[in-house]
Amino acid sequence: MKALIVIDFTRDFVTGSLPVGQPAVEIEETIASITEAYCNNKHEVIMAVDLHEESDPYHPETALFPPHNIRDTEGRLLYGRLAQVMKEREAQIRWMDKTRYSAFCGTDLELRLRERGITDIALIGVCTDICVLHTAMDAYNKGFHITVYEDAVASFNQAGHDWALGHFRSSLGAQVIKASDTVIAGLNL
């Protein structure tokens, strides 16, 4: 069984208060298409979305980054066409709040995947070398098989992005592929 985890593809992370910018804008259509393909193939789809409280002095990211993905703000909404996919496929997609880089940290993600017999996960979203990387590392340590769609992840800097893609392959044994090399409508899931 397979699942897709869409990580932090929100307005704040694409063009908002902590923007990846153009690299994230460029993957919008690929992210939406992959998400639709997983829904069409009746696979588990999870939106793992960063959640912060305004002026939280105890969260470790408060000292590292400007405020972002604050509860009940426009910046926390999904970006671009992904928002429309979520609206159209709401019954098929699970929204999951996360408060740390990894989608596994402090959430019921592992339990949800295990109770559904899911052994393989695919990761897309931002940032390649932060939240996608930490989620992949936890997935590896928990024994999941990992696929990363390299044309559906982006980061603040190209060096970090490239390093993370190499790390997925060489240290986590992940399959790193391009969605554009597959037929997205019938994505080989």
Rank of each mutant, 00 (worst) to 15 (best):
K2P: 11
K2L: 09
A3V: 09
L4M: 08
I5E: 02
D8G: 07
T10M: 07
F13A: 00
T15G: 05
T15W: 07
T15F: 10
P19Q: 04
G21V: 07
Q22F: 09
I27M: 08
E29I: 06
S33T: 03
Y38P: 00
C39D: 09
N41P: 00
K42E: 14
V45A: 08
V49W: 00
D50M: 02
D50T: 03
L51K: 10
E53M: 13
E54M: 13
S55F: 03
P57A: 06
A63F: 02
A63L: 14
P67F: 06
N69K: 03
N69D: 14
R71S: 13
D72H: 13
R76T: 03
R76F: 05
L77Y: 06
L78N: 04
L82E: 00
V85F: 04
E90N: 11
A91I: 01
Q92S: 14
I93K: 01
R94W: 06
R94Y: 10
D97N: 11
T99M: 11
T99N: 12
S102F: 05
S102Q: 03
A103C: 08
F104N: 00
G106C: 09
G106N: 06
T107F: 09
T107K: 13
L109A: 07
E110H: 15
L113K: 12
L113G: 08
L113P: 08
G125P: 06
C127Y: 00
C127V: 11
T128V: 12
C131Y: 01
T135C: 12
K142N: 10
K142P: 00
G143D: 11
F144N: 04
I146R: 03
V148I: 15
Y149R: 03
E150S: 15
Q158S: 13
W163I: 14
A164V: 10
R169P: 02
S170H: 12
S171I: 07
G173D: 08
A174D: 05
I177K: 00
A179R: 02
S180P: 01
I184E: 07
G186W: 09
G186K: 14
G186N: 15
